[in-house]
Design a protein around this nucleic acid. Structure first.
Lengths: 222, 222
DNA sequence: GTCTATAAATGAATGCCATTCATTTATCTC
DNA sequence: GAGATAAATGAATGGCATTCATTTATAGAC
């Protein structure tokens, strides 16, 4: 077993094959690296190869810790869910708490819309942070006097709205520019123009819809 | 220029290179084939190669008619938008018309959620069917007495809700199963159980949220 | 303490994917 | 009729997630 001569002064200290002395990877590290990569390069830049590189590791090494790229997305999702501020249900009256929670939720996920298609369909079973958020929100609804069997439908509806609004928040300002077809859509074009210089009222729309949902659901309290 | 001997009795009548006598492809045909492929194989099965094959053509031939796969998705989107029933605004009172339109919109796109991430951010400029829908909805709001500058925000909020709900509609029934973590989320778990055998109340939630939005927005009429 | 199973890394595939390009052939325009 | 253009083929290209054989370190069984 001849010792391979260690290449002197190599800028990249290449790890040789075989299990390293100290563990290099774990789920927390992978999650953090994935988040950093996304915030620097966006979701297009989140590839298994790029993730491995940012961790100083071969791509195949990742598969000792996650089963697939979707697994990585789930790790990221869980981390984001823990960042959603559900504590407001303990400190504010229900109306304000829901609105604050909804803004927090939307703001976080509007930078992570590619996750939404994964999350929305994902069983919550192995997602403790996500479950913790649901528990906090449910408790808030219970304290506000909601009948138990109305709480989940309300949360589902609110979440649907929040996810949809997260997409909106990333839309370009000129998304409603009717261009050459303006003449054939006079009413719509005029309605867009009436908004003034800001053509895409994502924030106004979010507030209006949220107010309506909160008002409507608030009436269900016993 | 020697004529290549036509292989006799070939099961697949291979087209030889060069422009064919009759045009094989056009946008309408590509759109129809893409829709058929999606309904048979889902969006995972919608690849440029599979699309080309279903049209009896080489993959590269598609690029004479569309610039990219995203272009194909845009074609599909336009087709779906034309299927959303906006005619109800001409025949029903505003509340019922909005609800009917929203159901139609959600039902169509719940089978096409992978499009949502594309649409939601897509300028409407070159999308005549989409614009036609917006025009019809805007007219409906105007007739109902809405101030011009409130119409677009209302539509944006409704659309956000509809897109989010389209994701919900595809979620598995056990999405809220808290599994081993049930003990640490007692209130949430109880709220889920209170729904009875149907654990994921997508339809009930959609109706409740839609009612709230319509009631809240209806108050804006002049 | 040694032996063995297992965990964690490398590096070299694999197969699929969207897309591009050179080439060929037909059609349109002047 | 000539030259430009449109529309097809078929052969690349490069990126992607994932798998596998191999190597090395560690933990647990005896």
């Amino acid at each position: 077993m001849p010792e391979p001569s260690p290449s002197p002064a190599e800028t990249k200290p290449r790890r040789r094959a075989g299990r390293p002395v100290g563990s290099v990877l774990d789920k927390a590290g992978i999650t953090a690296a994935a988040l950093a990569l996304v915030s620097k390069k966006g979701y297009d830049g989140l590839t298994m190869a790029a993730l491995a590189k940012s961790l100083g590791v071969a791509p195949s090494a990742l598969y000792n810790h996650v089963g697939s790229k979707d697994d990585v997305l789930r790790l990221v999702e869980e981390d984001l869910m823990s960042q959603v501020d559900s504590s407001v249900f303990g400190s504010l009256p229900w109306e304000e708490a829901v609105k604050s929670w909804a803004y927090s939720y939307r703001d976080i996920f509007s930078a992570h819309t590619p996750l939404i298609s994964v999350i929305a369909v994902l069983p919550v079973t192995d997602a403790p942070q996500t479950l913790a958020m649901y528990e906090a929100v449910t408790e808030g609804f219970l304290r506000a006097g909601f009948p138990e069997d109305r709480i989940i439908p309300c949360i589902v509806a609110l979440e649907a709205y929040i996810f949809g609004a997260a997409f909106d928040a990333t839309a370009p300002a000129d998304i409603f520019d009717s261009g050459k077809l303006a003449e054939s859509t006079p009413h719509f074009t005029a309605a867009v123009r009436s908004l003034g210089p800001v053509n895409y009222p994502s924030d106004l729309a979010f507030r209006m819809g949220l107010d309506a949902l909160v008002a409507g659901f608030g009436a269900l309290r016993g």
